[in-house]
Nucleic acid binder design. Structure first.
Lengths: 149, 149
DNA sequence: CCGAATTGTATGCTTCACTAACGAATTAGC
DNA sequence: GCTAATTCGTTAGTGAAGCATACAATTCGG
């Protein structure tokens, strides 16, 4: 006897399992855990791979644009780019068109790492997609996109 | 001209936007950000609310079972329960049936906090659900459940 | 009863996210 | 053109989470 939408009983809304956000959090945890295993050898995180990938797709991209694309603030972007620069995967150059910006480029090492990462991503995605029917994958991505804009 | 499924071109698999895990991560970020705003006054995180909620639903639950439900290891569960205990939301008792376990209970303060939290959750969920059609919500939760088991 | 497994605990490390402040460069307003 | 506001990068500090490891107490299997 589930009483939903009852304005009287506002306290006991629903069970934790009916909270959409709860499932998004759990799914993210599961995906992240599997990602970490898959990338143990490469020693790269999701964020790091994303930054490598985007930098490769948009050579000379600024940190602020990188952050906008991945929904991170400037400070967070800094720490990630710093790590990748320390490992000689990314090179910072002052932008020629806007002196405030840094133009980011992959090094050869960075390209090699990204290439290896993409192989692992393929594995990781295969694991994830094995839990969904092809038609569902499209639907899922579309719905998630609506959530994150 | 997107070349998909090409076995020759294994390096350039697809765009970042075609990676399901990428969208899960972004969606989680967006949800978490909105959650944090909504809960700024209460000063509670998703995990903390989840622990309060589950402890309320299962009085006397052990930390290990809490962790299993929320997919956290023992150490992570500890830190969260510690924080909630420091704020007098949760009380630890030695289990009567198994001396290794702690039986967790909400305090009156904890119940008050959870009650307030559930009001905020309702707001937060409304924001999230406003981006989806009712029929989609069910489908989304079902798919996410398949991902996190 | 003894060894193995379970549970809680303590410690330390890492990633990520955010805030606040500052300087340098650019842009806008007048 | 010149000041004022804004943008971008940078640094430093805080806090939540997740994980690994080690240890003690308890329980369980034989």
């Amino acid at each position: 006897m589930k009483e939903r939408g009852s304005l009287v009983e506002m306290d006991k809304i629903e069970g934790l399992n009916d909270i959409v956000g709860f499932h998004i959090r759990l799914a993210h945890g599961a995906v992240n855990r599997h990602f970490t295993e898959t990338f143990a050898d490469l020693d790269l995180t999701q964020k790091q791979v994303s930054v490598l990938w985007l930098t490769d797709d948009h050579p000379g991209i600024s940190q602020i644009d990188l952050g906008r694309e991945l929904q991170m603030d400037r400070a967070t972007t800094m720490t990630i780019v710093n790590r990748l620069q320390q490992r000689d995967f990314i090179r910072r150059e002052r932008s020629l068109t806007d002196g405030r910006k840094q133009a980011l480029h992959l090094t050869d090492e960075g390209r090699t790492a990204l290439s290896a990462a993409k192989q692992c991503i393929a594995q990781h995605e295969a694991w994830l997609k094995s839990r969904l029917k092809p038609s569902e994958i499209e639907k899922l991505v579309e719905m998630l996109s609506r959530i994150h804009d």
